Amino acid sequence: MLAWARGLGLVADAFEEKRLVAMRLGAFACLTVPRASAGDLALTAQWAAFICLVDDRFDRSRTEVRPKEVAALFDRLLDVVTSGAAGTGSGTEQALDDLWRRTAPRMSARWRERFVADYRDFALATCEEAAGRADGVRLGLSDYVVRRRRTITALPMADILECTAGAPWPGLPGGEDLVRSLRQAAADVAGWTNDLVSAEEDLREDRDNLVTVLSRARGCPLSSAHEQVTLMRNDRIRDFHSLAASLTTMAGPGTGPDAVRRYVAALGQFVSATLHWLGVTDRFDARWSRERPGACH
């Protein structure tokens, strides 16, 4: 994975290379798609690296994030997945172009539309977040929860797993809303667990985080807010498993039960892997939080 990221210019220097290694995304991929081929394990890890590094250009740097630069970057990235316009762009664009060319042709037109829609929504939410940060806007609890589901990039990653786990969105009459609810629960678990792990760093860097937002909204100490967010996250895990059971039950004869079970199992594996990985990754280690030039390049 490091050779891939270095070769395409996704990592700019030795500092970013060491940070990428510290993320342990190879281990994340092995936990997420344990029965995948070596090629699909690598593809999963590389997509995760791309997603984390793009996100970290905004959140793990003390360099001022300018909303116009954020919007311009995402315009270029969306051009890659809609028109193949990587050209001679940045390493970020070249990496996405490489990933897209190795993933999209294997999937249906409907999948491609869904991935683009999910990534576009992530981009829009990130731009909204950047603008709010520049303007000093502090979200309320309910608004933060909605936006966090969009900025965590769990939905685009879930799309990728349809490919690398061999578990495409199941065609289940009457079950589309339930599939969407399952995906949203997975995204919430990922986002809220991420915030629990990164709470100390986010507080130090004066970034909104579910722990600090809840503390502000309820007027309670951060230690209490941390406990409350943990309970929220645990309840959301139970929601996920309840939705998964309901979806599996709906898949009766003639509705592709095997496809439904594969999809539910793949998302369940993603949730389990994310919970484990966020407990062992060094992505949020303080040594990676220092001024980095060119955050949005």
Rank of each mutant, 00 (worst) to 15 (best):
L10R: 08
V11Q: 06
A12E: 14
D13C: 11
A22I: 00
R24L: 13
F28I: 08
F28G: 10
V33L: 07
A36T: 04
A36V: 14
S37D: 11
G39V: 10
D40N: 14
A45F: 10
A45L: 10
F50S: 02
D59S: 05
K68Q: 15
L73A: 04
L73W: 07
F74Q: 11
V80Q: 09
S83T: 15
G84E: 09
G87L: 13
T88F: 08
E93Q: 13
A95Q: 06
W100K: 04
R106M: 10
R112K: 14
R112A: 15
F115M: 06
Y119T: 00
D121H: 12
C127S: 12
G136W: 10
L139P: 03
L139Y: 01
L141H: 11
D143K: 00
R147I: 03
R148D: 05
I152S: 01
L155V: 11
D159C: 02
A167E: 01
P168R: 03
Q184G: 11
A190I: 07
E200V: 11
D206V: 14
N209M: 06
L210W: 00
S215N: 02
R216K: 12
A217R: 09
P221C: 14
H226G: 00
R236Q: 15
R236P: 01
F240K: 05
F240A: 02
A245W: 04
A245R: 15
S246D: 15
G256E: 01
R262H: 09
R262D: 04
Y263C: 09
A266N: 05
A266L: 02
A273T: 00
W277I: 12
L278P: 01
V280Y: 07
